[in-house]
Structure formats: structure tokens, C-alpha cells
Amino acid sequence: MKYTSEIIVDVPRTVFIEKLDNPENMVHWQRGLVKYKPLSSNPGEEGAQMELHYKMGKRELVMIETILKRNLPDEMHATYDAKGVHNIQHNYFEIVSPTQTRWRSESEFQFSGFFMKFMAFLMPGAFKKQSMKYLRDFKAFAEEGKKVSNS
């Protein structure tokens, strides 16, 4: 399953990247993120891995992020692996104006196992909706300092 999500954030690209590239900010705009742990000695660089722990309702999810390409401020690509799901993210950051940044995120989900394939077939909109939620939550955090967490 492939799709593209896009949003314009009303902050200069330098501010956008500063907020997006700080792992300590993730908890403020990624709902359900409980903790993260770098698995590599070169956090944030190409090839680096990070373990992400999410709690969604009663369900807990552990995901491994691997940075594929880091060409900031223009683009950053990564994969996210969890049980039954391999997600490839290509993220592009474009200057719209001196005070606006466009974030275009191209998502590709690959599923293994009957249950995950079945869920993707039944509810492809849920994946798109979740991606847009993260973009909107980041926009609110970057523009207004609005946090999805209590921290």
C-alpha cells in the first residue's frame, strides 16, 4: 500500500527542521510514544537505528526506525519495522515562503502475516488517517507549542 500525505506548517524551514530533528520532541507530537532508545552509536545519521515504544489503548507496539537517507533540510528517509509491518517513509521538506514549510511524506507499507494483510485490506484508510494525524500534531506543536503528551 502506497500513499502520500502533505501539510503546510507555518514556521520557517530552519525552525521546522530544528523541531523535527530533535528526538526529545517526538513525544510532544507522536501520540502514544512512551519512550525511545538509540540502538546505534551514530543517532540520527544514515544507518542509525532507534527503538520506539508506543502505547495505543491497551496495545503496546515496539518499532525499529532505520535512517536510510539524511539530507536535511531537504529530505529524510527511514524505515519503520514492527511485527508484521515494514513501513518505508520518504519525507521531503520544501520552503513555501519565508514563514512556511511544506512536509510531503510518501508512505509505503509492506505487510507479512495473514492478520496484518487482512487489516490493511479492510482498513487502508486507517493508515492514511494515522499518518495525517502525525502531520497535524507536528504542525500544532511547531506552530503553537501544543503537545499531545503531558510532559
Rank of each mutant, 00 (worst) to 15 (best):
K133Q: 08
G47A: 10
M26G: 15
E46C: 13
S131Y: 08
T79L: 07
L20S: 05
A142D: 15
E24T: 15
M56I: 12
L72Q: 00
K83Y: 08
H90E: 15
G57L: 10
R70N: 12
D10A: 10
M63Y: 03
F127A: 15
K147F: 00
I64A: 11
Q89W: 07
G47R: 01
Y80P: 00
V34Y: 05
S131C: 12
A48Y: 00
M56D: 08
T14K: 00
M63W: 06
F138G: 04
E24G: 06
V85H: 01
A78K: 00
V85G: 12
M56G: 01
V34D: 10
R70E: 09
K133V: 05
R59Y: 15
Y80D: 02
F141M: 08
N71A: 02
Q130H: 03
F118S: 14
K139T: 06
M50S: 09
G125Q: 09
S112Y: 10
K19Y: 08
R70S: 15
G84F: 03
H77A: 07
A48V: 04
F111Q: 03
I64P: 02
Q130E: 14
P43E: 07
F109N: 07
E65L: 12
M1Y: 03
A140P: 12
K133H: 05
F109S: 03
L20Q: 08
G145E: 01
F114S: 04
D81H: 05
Q49A: 10
T4D: 06
A126F: 10
Y36H: 13
I88S: 15
R31N: 13
S97Y: 02
F121L: 09
K133I: 07
K83D: 14
F115S: 11
M119C: 05
P43Q: 09
E24F: 05
T14I: 12
G113M: 11
A120S: 07
F114G: 02
K2R: 01
G113C: 08
L20C: 02
N150C: 14
S149E: 02
H90R: 10
T14Q: 13
N71S: 12
H53D: 06
S112I: 01
G113R: 09
M56F: 13
N22E: 14
R70H: 06
N91C: 13
G44L: 04
F16W: 00
G145Q: 04
M119K: 08
E65D: 11
G145C: 13
I95N: 14
H86N: 10
K128S: 11
A120W: 05
S5H: 00
D81R: 11
V11R: 11
K19E: 13
V96E: 10
I7T: 10
S107P: 00
H77T: 07
V11D: 13
A140R: 10
V15E: 15
Y3C: 05
W103S: 01
N71R: 04
P23M: 06
F111N: 03
I88N: 15
N22L: 03
Q49G: 09
F93C: 13
D137W: 02
G44C: 03
K37Y: 01
D21C: 08
G44I: 04
S149R: 04
S151A: 12
P12L: 01
